[in-house]
Computed example of a mutant assay.
Amino acid sequence: MGTRKIPMRKDILTEKMFPKREMVRIVRDKEGNISIDPTGKKSGRGAYVGLDPDAIKEAKSKKVLEKVFSKKVSPDFYDELFDFVDHQKARMDLFGDLGKKH
């Protein structure tokens, strides 16, 4: 068996490419609701952010998600995203890739 290709995605906050498994997907559904997609399978317009809590803080001040999704995003969503990313980063640092499905 050959080596498997690792899916890469662009971080909308830093413009850098990262493995999909090391990112968090945010999705806007048909109704216009924006939410975190931990499974990566929700239908709708998706965008990816890396596991960098500082980038989330900066995105909140620059209103990056509003530009990406062409919709107003509440400050509470940025706080929720920050907490989720911070938790995922801590988990990745602690367990490596063990917490993810293979």
Rank of each mutant, 00 (worst) to 15 (best):
H87M: 11
S74R: 14
K67D: 12
K71P: 12
F84E: 02
D76R: 11
F95Q: 07
M17C: 15
K72I: 06
G44H: 03
G50M: 05
A90K: 08
G2M: 13
V27A: 05
K67C: 11
K5M: 04
K20W: 04
A90T: 08
K42G: 07
D86C: 14
T39E: 09
A47D: 03
N33F: 15
V85M: 01
S43K: 11
F77S: 01
D93P: 06
P7H: 04
G50A: 08
K10G: 03
D29R: 11
V27I: 15
F77K: 01
E80V: 04
I12W: 02
V27E: 02
S61H: 15
P53E: 11
P7I: 02
E80F: 07
E15N: 08
V24T: 03
K63F: 10
L81I: 05
D86A: 09
K72L: 14
T14F: 02
D11F: 03
K67V: 07
L13M: 07
V68P: 01
D83R: 11
L13F: 07
K101W: 13
D29S: 15
F69C: 00
V49D: 00
V49S: 00
A90V: 11
S74E: 13
G50T: 06
I12M: 04
R91H: 15
V73K: 00
K5F: 04
